[in-house]
Simulated assay, not measured.
Amino acid sequence: MLTAVAIAVDGLGFAAWLFLSSVGLTLIYGVMRILNIAHGGFYALGAYSSAWAIGLYTQTGSTIALTYLIIPLAALAVGVIAGLLIERGILRFMYGRDEVLMVLVTYAIFLILEDVTKLIWGTGSMVAYQPAYFLGTIEIFGIPYTIYKLCLVGLAIVVGAVLWWGLNRTRIGKLLLVVIEDREISRALGINVTLFFTVTFVIGVTLGALGGAVTAPQISVVPGIGAEIIVMAFAVIVIGGMGSIGGAIIGAIFVGFARALSVHLYPPAELFSIYLVMAVVLAFKPYGLFSLAEGRKI
C-alpha cells in the first residue's frame, strides 16, 4: 500500500515538473513548426537566473516568502530578453527554410547558451534551497513529501488551464489557431503572422525558463542541466504528439508514472523506462497520441 502511494505521489510530482519543462517546446513547434533544441538552454538560463536572484535576495536577510515571486520573475526576464534577441536577431531570417536547417540552427543556439551560462555564472554549482526548505514537508499516508513539489503540481494545473483557455476561449487564441492551420491564408486575411511568431516564441521561452526556475530550489544548478532536460522534454512531446498542449499533459503523465514505477520497483530501469514508453506509443501511433493534423497542400 505504501509503495503504491509513493508511486502515485512521485509520479504526479514528476509529471507536473515534466509538463512545466516541456510545454514551451511543444507550443513553439505547434505554432512555428520549429523543433527548438535551444529549449534546454532556456531551461538552464531560467534555473541559473532563479538560483542567482534567490541567492542575492536571501543575503539581505529579508523574508523568504518573497522568493516565490522571484522565481516567475526570473523566468519572465529570461523569456523576454533571450526570446526577443534570438527570435528577432536569428530565427526570423530562417522562416520558410528546411526543417533540418532549423534544427541545426537551434542546436547551435543551445551550444551558445551553454557557454553563455558559464561565462555569466561560472562552472561551479549554485544552490537556492530556501524556497523548498521554507515550506517543509507533509505526511501522506505516513510518507513524508515535500510541500514545494505539491505546489508544482498546482502550478502545472494553472499553466495548463491558462494555455487551454488562451487558445480556445480568446480571440487572440482563435487567430493563433488560424495561423497554425495555414500561414499563407492568415497573411491574406490581414493577420500579422510575424507578430504571432514573436509572441509565441517569447511565451515558449518563458515557459522553458519557468521549468528551470522552479527546479532550481530542488537541485544543485550545474552546467549541463539543459542537455538533460531536452532529452526528457522531447520524449514527452513525442509521446503526446508534437504541437499538442493536451498531448504534453498526457505525455508528461505517462513518463512521470513510468519513471516512478521504475524507481520504486526496479531502479536500474529508471532511464530505460522513459524510452520504453516512447517506443511502445510510437509503435502504434507514429505521430504521437494527440498529434496535430497536417494539412495537405496541392
Rank of each mutant, 00 (worst) to 15 (best):
V214Y: 03
V179R: 00
F284G: 13
W164Y: 15
V263E: 11
T146F: 13
V158F: 09
E270V: 11
I81C: 05
T60L: 12
M242Y: 07
S125D: 15
S273N: 02
L207P: 05
V193F: 10
L111R: 10
V231S: 04
L56T: 13
D98R: 02
R183Q: 14
W52C: 09
R88Y: 14
G61W: 06
Q59C: 14
F19I: 06
I34L: 01
S21L: 07
E139H: 09
R259Q: 07
I172W: 15
I37Q: 01
M242S: 13
T58V: 09
L69A: 10
G89K: 08
T26N: 01
A209Q: 06
H264C: 08
L27I: 04
Y129A: 11
Y145Q: 05
L18H: 04
P267T: 01
C151D: 07
R171S: 12
I191T: 09
I203H: 06
V221R: 00
F19Y: 06
I274Q: 03
Y275F: 12
T194C: 15
I64K: 11
V158E: 08
I229N: 00
A216G: 07
T123E: 13
L155V: 03
V238E: 03
G24K: 00
G11R: 02
K118P: 14
L104V: 06
P267L: 02
K297E: 13
A269Q: 05
V23P: 07
A108F: 08
R33G: 06
E99S: 14
K285W: 14
R33K: 08
G124Q: 15
W52S: 08
M1F: 15
L176G: 04
R259A: 03
W165L: 15
S262K: 04
M102G: 11
S186I: 05
I203V: 07
G166I: 02
E184H: 11
I143G: 07
A269F: 02
I229Q: 00
L282D: 09
E181G: 15
A65V: 10
